[in-house]
Simulated scan of single mutants.
Amino acid sequence: MKKRLFILTLFLVLGITSVFAQRIYVEKTDNGYEQPIVDKLISEGFQITFKQDSADYIVKCIIGKTGMGRAKGSVAIIDNKSGDLLAKTKEVNGQTAITNGYANPKMVAMKKIADKYLIDLVRKYCKVK
């Protein structure tokens, strides 16, 4: 009985860890706006790599219009082997406000994307085993 339980537990652990076997590289931005994206992927158990050439997928943070305490941003997922754009989030607004401690609007936009759209997008378009 103990042997069966051990084997079952082993298969469950191997199955869970193999779900996120694909390596993801998050492209660096000029001022670290990619950090909410990296934090969210790590907290969800995805395998992050810090070398682009060893990644299966690249997540690119795109900062759009900025000015007057506002910024727009989106995230694109690119297949590293083919270079094809797999998916892109819609543009999200970030705004400096007292409610967010006057945070940088670019960072606010990336945080919104990480919290609302990132994980569903990665699971849908990246071939996680």
Rank of each mutant, 00 (worst) to 15 (best):
G94A: 04
V26H: 06
I98N: 13
S82E: 00
K60E: 11
K28R: 13
N100Q: 09
L41F: 08
G15W: 05
E91H: 09
V38M: 01
D115S: 14
K51V: 00
A55E: 02
G45N: 00
K127D: 10
F11Q: 07
D120S: 15
G73P: 05
T96Y: 02
R70Y: 12
M1P: 12
Y33D: 02
A87I: 01
M1I: 10
M107A: 00
L86P: 02
I58S: 06
D39G: 04
V122G: 05
K111M: 00
V128E: 10
Q35W: 06
K116R: 14
K124T: 11
L8M: 14
R123I: 05
Y117K: 15
G73K: 01
A109F: 03
L14M: 11
T9Y: 06
L8S: 15
L85R: 13
K51E: 01
K90D: 15
Q52A: 12
L12D: 05
G101K: 02
S74F: 02
Q47I: 08
L12F: 14
S74V: 04
L12M: 13
D39C: 01
V26F: 12
K65L: 13
Y125L: 00
Q95E: 15
K106D: 11
I58V: 13
Q47S: 12
S54H: 14
A76E: 13
A97R: 13
F11S: 10
T66I: 14
D115R: 08
G94Q: 02
T89A: 07
K28D: 15
A21L: 07
E27N: 10
M1Y: 12
I42H: 01
K124G: 02
K3N: 07
V13I: 15
N93S: 13
K129F: 08
V26W: 07
S74I: 00
I7E: 13
D56Q: 01
K60V: 09
I119D: 00
I58R: 00
G83V: 04
D120C: 04
E44L: 06
M68P: 06
D79P: 01
C61E: 05
I78S: 03
N80I: 06
N93I: 10
A114N: 06
F20M: 12
L8W: 12
R23P: 07
M107G: 00
K51P: 06
A21K: 10
I24W: 08
V92H: 01
I48S: 11
A21R: 08
T17M: 07
A109S: 10
V59I: 15
I58K: 04
V38L: 05
F11L: 15
L5V: 14
K65I: 12
N80A: 15
V108W: 01
N80P: 03
F6Q: 05
A55M: 03
G32Q: 03
V75T: 03
K51T: 08
N93R: 09
A97W: 08
A55F: 00
K127V: 10
